[in-house]
Amino acid sequence: MIIWISALLIIIGFVFFLGGSLGMIRLPDFYSRLHAAGMLDTMGVFLSMAGLALYVVHDFTLGNFLSALKIILIVVFVFITSPTATHAIVDAGVRAGLKPWTKKN
């Protein structure tokens, strides 16, 4: 049962990874590509790590429990640092004078 839930979570996470990758190709300019690259990838990391943590815990020992805690710590760390990294890249772009793409009409 737990194994099926974790497999489902990993697959949904991969759908988000796929969306982030396709967005990096399809969107028109740097700023809007960053929406897909930074944020959809964060969600993909969250979901697939949750699936992996569930799979670690399914035979319960102390070592496995500590491994699952470490995986959760990685997710918390990614959730704090990913907006900061995105903001650093955007800030470099703004200071270089890169103009955002807008609709012509």
Partner: peptide
């Protein structure tokens, strides 16, 4: 642009974290 390259490297890195586990 150079910033697009940073973004690509960042996306590869966040996938690699999952791949390592």
């Amino acid at each position: 642009t150079i910033l697009d390259r940073f973004m690509g490297v960042n996306a590869i890195g966040s996938k690699t974290t999952v791949l390592l586990i």
